[in-house]
């Protein structure tokens, strides 16, 4: 075989292998979308699964829109709240850890790394009892504080790594101009860190959006519930009703997908700079998916 032919053959095989991998990785999403347009008799108890169903219905979406709208709103409030709280905590801290000298900097960074490792069930177990005393159960603030625990340590570390890479002279100039610490932070550091801020905000949003364990433990579902919790109760209570559950799952994915596409170019920038500075970045993991693997 001539080298050129061989190379073309290798490329073809590689393409096929990549295609096969994509089919396996993406099929579940395809199945969800298709199922969300099918009637329940097509999905449950049917004699076989059809990959290309011939009949479609919008009834699942009609039901979900009329019954689940408030849950989508709840998820949005929680996710936005988580993003705002995370930024409010992480931005100043990252700035201080990047810019000022503390004897305890190494200790603080190490404790953030450990905080990232803590299993959420440990936090949930205690917070439930603490919240019971503080009357924070079934409340947005309580849940948002808990949900921020996914993103706060990661965000401080990523933002700090990014801020360490900012040019020193610009900040020195702000100092010389007599800017206060706060002004230098808000007028100089924040605008220059835009892509990292967007990355972190998105990460926090997706974690708040995808959280399940804190919603399960800190809410009883009588006041409000996010989409994740409502999918869970859906499949538990009416485990037969796959069509509606899958339509709801589409709603659980859509906002994340839209946001990610909208913010794509910032994320790439934020992560590249981050990864040059420290390996902690890579935890930008399975995002909604608060955790990998």
């Amino acid at each position: 075989m001539r080298p050129a032919t061989r190379r073309r053959l290798a490329a073809a095989i590689a393409s096929l292998a990549a295609l096969a991998a994509l089919v396996v990785l993406l099929f579940p999403l395809y199945a969800v979308i298709v199922a969300s347009f099918e009637t329940n008799s097509q999905l449950f108890g049917a004699s076989h699964y059809s990959f290309f169903p011939s009949q479609f219905t919008l009834s699942n979406y009609r039901v979900v829109l009329s019954q689940q709208g408030s849950h989508v709103i709840s998820s949005l409030i929680i996710a936005l709240g988580t993003a705002v709280l995370t930024l409010a905590i992480a931005l100043p801290a990252a700035h201080a850890l990047a810019r000022y000298r503390f004897r305890v900097t190494a200790l603080l960074v190490a404790s953030l790394l450990i905080a990232q490792i803590l299993p959420s069930i440990v936090i949930a177990n205690s917070l439930f009892l603490v919240y019971h005393r503080l009357h924070l159960l079934n409340s947005y603030p309580g849940l948002i504080i808990a949900d921020a625990s996914y993103a706060v340590p990661f965000s401080i570390l990523v933002l700090r790594a990014f801020m360490l890479g900012l040019p020193r002279d610009v900040l020195a100039a702000a100092r010389v101009d007599g800017a206060t610490e706060w002004r230098a932070f808000t007028r100089v550091v924040l605008p220059m860190s835009r892509s990292a801020v967007i990355t972190v905000a998105l990460f926090a949003f997706l974690n708040g959006w995808g959280d399940f364990i804190f919603a399960l433990t800190l809410l009883n579902g009588n006041t409000f519930e996010p989409v994740t919790l409502s999918i869970y109760t859906y499949v538990g209570e009416f485990s037969q009703n796959w069509g509606e559950a899958m339509a709801l799952a589409v709603f659980a994915v859509l906002p994340a997908a839209m946001l990610l596409i909208a913010a794509q170019r910032y994320i790439a920038a934020g992560l590249t700079v981050g990864s040059v500075k420290g390996l902690s970045i890579v935890i930008g993991d399975t995002s909604c998916a608060s955790s990998i693997g």
């Binding site: 991998a21 994509l22 990785l25 993406l26 579940p28 999403l29 199945a31 969800v32 199922a35 999905l43 959006w209 995808g210 959280d211 399940f212 994740t228 999918i231 869970y232 499949v235 796959w242 559950a245 899958m246 799952a249 659980a252 994915v253 994340a256 997908a257 990610l260 993991d285 399975t286 995002s287 909604c288 998916a289 608060s290 955790s291």
Partner: peptide, 20 residues
């Protein structure tokens, strides 16, 4: 495209695979 599975909240992934 390989990153698309990251969009799913983990609980939703669990439910979807229960269906599959």
């Amino acid at each position: 495209l390989i990153l698309v599975p990251w969009l799913l909240p983990l609980l939703v992934t669990g439910v979807i695979f229960k269906f599959l």
